[in-house]
Design a protein around this nucleic acid. Sequence first.
DNA 1: CAGTGTTTTTTCGAGGCTCGAAAAAATGGG
DNA 2: CCCATTTTTTCGAGCCTCGAAAAAACACTG
Lengths: 414, 414
Amino acid sequence: MSVGIRHDDLRRRNRAMVISAVRRAAHPSRTEIAATTGLSHSTISAISSDLIEEGVLAESKPSEPGSFKRGRPQVGLSLNPEAATVMTVVLSLNFLSVAVIDYTGQVIAEEQRRLDTLTMNREALVGACIAIVRRRLEDADLDVRGIARIALAIQGVTDTHARAMLWSPITPHTDIPFADVLEEEFGIPAIVENDCNMMAVALRWRDPQRYRDDFIAVLLSHGIGMGLVLKGELFSGTHSSGGEFGHMIHRPDGALCRCGRRGCIEAYAGNYAIWRNASEMGEEAEPVDVGDAEMRVLAATAREKDGPEREAYRKAGEALGFGLGSLFALVDPAPVAMVGVSAAAFDLIEPALREAIAQTAGGQHSKSISFDTEPNELPLIREGCAMRALTFVDEQIFAPGVQARAGVAGKNVA
Amino acid sequence: MSVGIRHDDLRRRNRAMVISAVRRAAHPSRTEIAATTGLSHSTISAISSDLIEEGVLAESKPSEPGSFKRGRPQVGLSLNPEAATVMTVVLSLNFLSVAVIDYTGQVIAEEQRRLDTLTMNREALVGACIAIVRRRLEDADLDVRGIARIALAIQGVTDTHARAMLWSPITPHTDIPFADVLEEEFGIPAIVENDCNMMAVALRWRDPQRYRDDFIAVLLSHGIGMGLVLKGELFSGTHSSGGEFGHMIHRPDGALCRCGRRGCIEAYAGNYAIWRNASEMGEEAEPVDVGDAEMRVLAATAREKDGPEREAYRKAGEALGFGLGSLFALVDPAPVAMVGVSAAAFDLIEPALREAIAQTAGGQHSKSISFDTEPNELPLIREGCAMRALTFVDEQIFAPGVQARAGVAGKNVA
DNA sequence: CAGTGTTTTTTCGAGGCTCGAAAAAATGGG
DNA sequence: CCCATTTTTTCGAGCCTCGAAAAAACACTG
């Protein structure tokens, strides 16, 4: 069942720890790393000199530029930007975006493309991804071997091993093994991740103070998604992907959801749901995709006068509030980030949301629930995706298990 | 943040692993342990001879009595029953139960007592627990030092560190620091755990085949509780206790719940809810405690004729079904164990439950959801509690961190 | 500008742990 | 009674981390 710790694992894990400490902090000194990891100075010294020699880390100026301290000045450690390069692919509704990222997380090159994901056939969709990746590789004048990992983020359900998209609202096709396809095509290890999970990862890197061990990222867009971090770890469902928060049941036998079921949270709070409630089309109306601009107009109208538009946002708030309340019955309250177009309309949503949450088990500790908003999800998803890919490089290439070490490290550490 | 692995941790963890392997399997040989842990024979040999010398393990007959294999016969390892003794305290509605357990998990002595938990004052409740523990200690002719740990299971919300009961339906009092009280009184380290979590722990020990890495234990009793195991670990809320499944919202502004809120699952599926629906008292009726015998009569009536009783169970099933469906939107479907009086009436609950679950996101994979029933929760809770206490002994006393080692191990390893 | 104090980093030997190989132990089969 | 077979122990090698001490690098002082 659980496996014992071998002697070689020790170094591996501690290497990974040093790398992650350097990635997290800005130019930490060896002494600072020793303090945060709890390892001795000698160990940190040994590991970091190894890593510098291998070209993973580099020495840089100390963290505090104006340090007027007495003794020997600290030498800051930083990631070597050229240690590895990764690629991110973000596939969302009618939109495909690719970026080449250096080892420090800086964007080297990028390309974005509109495409009609809903109507494309399977081969065209997969082909579009492959084509854009290939174009970036060629344009950036990069050797295929120069890319260490590819991470693909997609809206919908992915499998446990981050290898395939099982189901997605952006395409009628199911079970597309993107990771295998990309690996076969380019020979580069690839992973497939849920977009909301990547949002959560990005939030943690952006603001580690606020988004620390426990928090929730909710995507308010066409659909409702969620990325959940509990006890410092991404909480993905055991088999498939991130929690399908949007498809928790708000009202049994309630409004028609895009997924074909009834009463889902999304059927009240998704863009299409807000839209059809605002236009008084009824809860049975076929879900339509509404543009971001139209949603902004809708929000403006709702702010202006008390009509069906305002009521639509109220209903959305209510659904989200009861949903979060039920969620908080299971996992204790935590900070929430609202992301996506409708997050820009959170002022319209919040009152009903808070009222609903107060009527639930989560309401007791409503103080610890605070909301933050971020209207633009795409940059967030890409950032998270990049960090995910880089973390894989950190762990798999630069602090690999015994078997992987010789082979992979050899060709990537240049 | 995350802490590096020290060199001493290695032995500690591997010791813990060997102990747990012996506890899990029936008389495993050293070779078998080497296979399951992935450690080398030499390491297992060294660790187990240490443990035998310390009196934690003992050699016994091989696992397969009729082993006619060729070579040197395997020597089975087993736990030394006298290595340590623990105590379990289970506090439930109007009932207090204490047991003394040896290191293998066998019950040495026990005592049970009725008491009126709902009306007792705070001091009386705490005093009753102390008194029954003291009596067991004296009767069993045990030195206080002979008990290594006390584990107390209670219905309700406990704090993260397993030290206090924060809130419970069995008493009006809140924030009772049972662990501190017991430690102060007897000088024995104590922990406080949620009853449903202990049910889940026990199920895992009873049937590791079925209840392995992911499963759900649902308590169908006065209230509705849940113990959730995900990825092989008990999933407790981040701050407080196990998921308050019973207080997820089934119908916004719905039936009156014992917790004062409206529309909770419990307000449809708790004993009192089934009772008041069966007696057609309306969903506003004040919750009353219904005896187990009365519930059994109710179930029998419901089986006999199609009246309000049957409808009450149908409503309970519907609430549980939508609740599980919402849960399965977050954590992928897993086997469910229904425990408690109303689990004996699961035949009445199941049809509506399945129908509801089919209308939710969880319904897609309904194949992987299977139900098992266990009408009697008390033995399960006590078993889980015992295993919890013993696991603590395994990890904290017999495979302790560096600082704890000298002091504690000295007086307990006899 | 040399000496002193302070802090960071490296060096070095000690102690522990796990591992693989070989030896020892324990048994059935011929 | 010896051999084949399997389990368990023994032993030396190789790593890894640690603590202490040394070395390095700078600020401050007079």
